[in-house]
């Protein structure tokens, strides 16, 4: 027992010191450089839907890099994105924060051209300039550019925008016994 004390006296504080040093270092040199933001941003679905509470995907990426936002706030990305982020950042995978919204299949906005009054409000709201039109002229969504972010819905005074599912035609049938994380979505 007497031999134990020197060990405890030396190793205990040494361990404590190293631990404190490491935690300071982790905070001090935390990687919120641009490359880190870029890498996080690359994993986000780029819907620019702002459901995470940030004005676009890049600002959300920046917030994650700075440790200001959690990784489970992206409904369009769903579990896949959360897993990829957790992988990159060495964090725990968690469920999607339902206060941000629910994960849905990719969507596409379609303007009902009968009802559109040409107010241009949706054009200003679209984060990827995917709506073409001019004042007093009927607008239309460029299908290939639309991210389905739903940001054009609130400003529309006549509710002429609908969202349709953009599910791709599957190439093959996948039998029920095949269980893969992302396939369920």
């Amino acid at each position: 027992m007497t031999q134990l004390w020197p060990t405890l006296i030396i190793l205990g504080p040494a361990g404590l010191l190293i631990g404190i040093g490491l935690s300071i270092a982790a905070r001090r040199w935390q990687d919120h450089s641009d490359t880190m933001i870029e890498r996080i941003n690359k994993l986000l679905p780029q819907t620019q839907c702002e459901q995470c509470g940030h004005p676009g995907c890049r600002p959300y990426a920046r917030a994650i890099a700075r440790g200001e936002a959690d990784i489970n706030r992206c409904p369009p990305g769903g579990d896949t994105t959360i897993r990829a982020l957790a992988d990159l950042l060495g964090k725990q995978v968690k469920a999607l924060d339902s206060s941000c919204g629910e994960h849905k299949a990719p969507l596409l906005a379609v303007i009902d051209e009968q009802r559109c009054i040409g107010c241009t409000l949706c054009i200003q709201a679209c984060p990827v300039d995917a709506i073409a039109g001019a004042a007093k002229w009927m607008h239309t969504v460029i299908a290939a550019e639309c991210t389905g972010c739903e940001l054009c819905l609130p400003p529309c005074p006549v509710d002429c925008i609908d969202l349709v599912s953009l599910a791709d035609q599957p190439q093959r049938r996948i039998p029920a016994h095949v269980q893969i994380p992302d396939l369920a979505a």
Binding site: L44, G56, A130
Partner: peptide, 10 residues
């Protein structure tokens, strides 16, 4: 591919 394009357009 879609995400990359959206990021560019944004």
């Amino acid at each position: 591919a879609r995400a990359d394009k959206s990021a560019l357009r944004h």
